[in-house]
């Protein structure tokens, strides 16, 4: 075989292998999604939303406690984390800029924290907010989730604000606006869609977290809306129910998994649609 023929053969082999890899990747995705949908739909019924948790074997058990708990945890974490993240990102883009050592350090640290193990953050919050009080609480879980969420929102806000053209800012200044008004009324408004996308992705990411809640908000099998007490979450409930030996609990675990995945995938798709709408403008 000539060298050229050999090269063409190797090329063909590599192309086949790459396509196979992609096929393997897609196959796993389809596998996971399929079992998620099959088990989830099988397990979903109105009981899920009506009843709270119950000992295994009880007819009247559901996920109401976990759903409400999850909404409370994510909701409050979002209410705290998003403004913090946006304001911090605003500092980086509008006051720090690209050359400031402080701003770049904050950017670097945030990048690293975005990939840091979330269970360590859970341990940290345990030490400062659970141990001193002697009990788990929803607030501890919220703090852990906020710590995870802020760097994500911070970075996307920073990036999106930087995309706003300098001329826009200059035009506002030229009209005599003070800096804080330029930022709030012109720049942030200009990056609105991008920032919203970042928020959606941040919420999606945090909704799927289990590890940081394991020993902060802990869990509760019954409905509890008092954040100063342990509170149920969809993720921890999923973990507990799925690893239990009880079939009806396992079923509820799949229902929870299905609901959570649809929510997160929905947020991701929404974020993407927003991004595309922005690009087409």
């Amino acid at each position: 075989m000539t060298h050229v023929e050999k090269r063409i053969l190797i090329n063909k082999i590599v192309m086949i292998l790459s396509s196979l890899s992609a096929a393997v990747g897609i196959a796993f995705l389809l596998w996971i999604l399929t079992i998620l949908v099959i088990n989830g739909i099988d397990a979903i019924n109105w009981n899920i939303f009506i009843f709270e948790g119950a000992p295994p074997g009880y007819e009247e058990s559901g996920l109401k406690h976990a759903l409400i708990g999850q909404v409370m945890l994510i909701g409050v974490a979002t209410l705290i984390g998003v403004p913090l993240g946006i304001l911090a990102g605003t500092y980086l883009s509008e006051y720090g800029g690209l050359k400031s050592k402080l701003a770049n350090t904050i950017r670097d640290i945030s990048d690293i924290m975005m990939s840091a193990p979330s269970i360590v953050i859970g341990s940290f919050v345990y030490a400062i907010f659970v141990a001193p009080f002697g009990h788990f609480s929803g607030w501890a879980g919220i703090i852990a989730l906020t710590i995870i969420m802020v760097p994500i929102i911070l970075r996307t806000t920073d990036d999106m604000l930087q995309l706003v053209p300098t001329t826009l800012r200059e035009a506002a200044f030229a009209l005599g606006a003070p800096k804080y008004k330029v930022i709030l009324q012109v720049v942030i408004r200009g990056a609105k869609t991008g920032i919203l996308t970042g928020v959606l992705l941040g919420v999606a990411r945090v909704s799927g977290e289990t590890a940081p809640l394991l020993f902060t908000s802990f869990n509760d099998n019954f409905l509890n809306t008092d954040l100063s007490e342990p509170i149920a979450s969809l993720t921890v409930t999923m973990f507990n129910y799925a690893t239990s030996p009880y079939e009806d609990w396992q079923k509820l675990g799949w229902a929870a998994a299905f609901i959570l995945s649809m929510f997160i995938l929905g947020l991701n798709i929404l974020g993407r649609l927003l991004l595309m709408k922005r690009k087409s403008k």
Partner: peptide, 13 residues
């Protein structure tokens, strides 16, 4: 999207 699926679900699967 695969990357967005929570890790707890990978664990269950």
């Amino acid at each position: 999207l695969l990357a967005a699926i929570p890790s707890v679900i990978y664990g269950m699967w």
